[in-house]
Write a protein that binds this DNA or RNA. Structure first.
Length: 231
DNA sequence: TACCAGGTCCTCG
DNA sequence: CGAGGACATGGT
């Protein structure tokens, strides 16, 4: 199964996921329905959400985002100047709250200092520059940087996470791929299309939750044993 | 109870 | 580089 075939199979099974979930009319949309442009505030929220969701279930991040919204603090200027303890309490449900409080403040302070708190200024940079700049920030690694670039900036980079690596390993039987290897693999086999990349990654996550779990059987999986064969 | 969740950083070899 | 530990809540 080639990557594009896998994508089509997953899309047919799970339907469109419309990631990234983002606050819309006061509440977090389970799936981001409308495809019109994201607002500046929503782009910022995605950046924060991408940091908060590190190794944590999304449900917990939703609680944290709701708290930030209720406190009317989910803005670059506010977070960059907020007390760390206050932020930590608000994002408590997201886990690692002390570390993450620093991370989201660090990111906000950087955005404020260098881009007047406007993600669109940051995102106007060439992808390579943007990526290395994000990676230079403490608290932003490969996946978080790419999630921001893809879902907030809307530029086509393929996001690799633990689920994607797991999917690649199963059926492959190949040795573990590094982040860069896995990313290069997908990007070399797919059209460079941000909407496709967004949807594909979201579908892999959904599929991994339902079937391709840590200890999961390929027996029950609708893709069968050869899910990744010949990829 | 124990394990897992849309990782990243730091410290050693 | 790559392995191993720390970081922490909430759901099953």
């Amino acid at each position: 199964m080639k990557p594009l075939e896998l994508y089509n199979a997953l899309l047919q099974k799970y339907k469109k996921q419309n990631w990234w979930p983002v606050t819309d009319s006061g509440k977090i949309a389970p799936a981001y329905k409308h495809r019109e442009k994201l607002s500046e505030k929503q782009k910022f929220e995605i950046c924060i959400g991408a940091i908060l969701t590190q190794n944590t279930a999304w449900k917990n991040i939703e609680k944290a985002i709701v708290n930030l919204n209720k406190a009317k603090i989910l803005e670059c200027e506010k977070i960059s100047h907020a007390k760390q303890e206050k932020l930590a309490q608000l994002i408590r449900p997201s886990g690692y709250y002390n570390q993450k409080a620093k991370k989201i403040r660090n990111f906000s302070a950087y955005l404020e200092k260098n881009y007047s708190c406007r993600t669109e200024n940051l995102f106007s940079k060439p992808v390579q520059e943007l990526r290395s700049e994000l990676l230079s920030l403490n608290g932003i690694g490969n996946e978080t940087a790419d999630s921001i670039i893809l879902y907030a900036a809307g530029k086509p980079v393929f996001v690799i996470d633990a689920y994607t690596k797991r999917l690649l390993q199963r059926g492959f039987g190949k040795k573990q791929m590094s982040y860069e290897e896995a990313q290069a693999f997908f990007e070399s086999q797919l059209p460079k299309d941000a909407e496709l990349f967004k949807e594909f990654h979201a579908l892999i996550v959904e599929h991994s939750k339902q079937y391709c779990k840590k200890h999961a059987g390929c027996e029950e999986c609708f893709l069968g044993k050869n899910c990744a064969k010949d990829m």
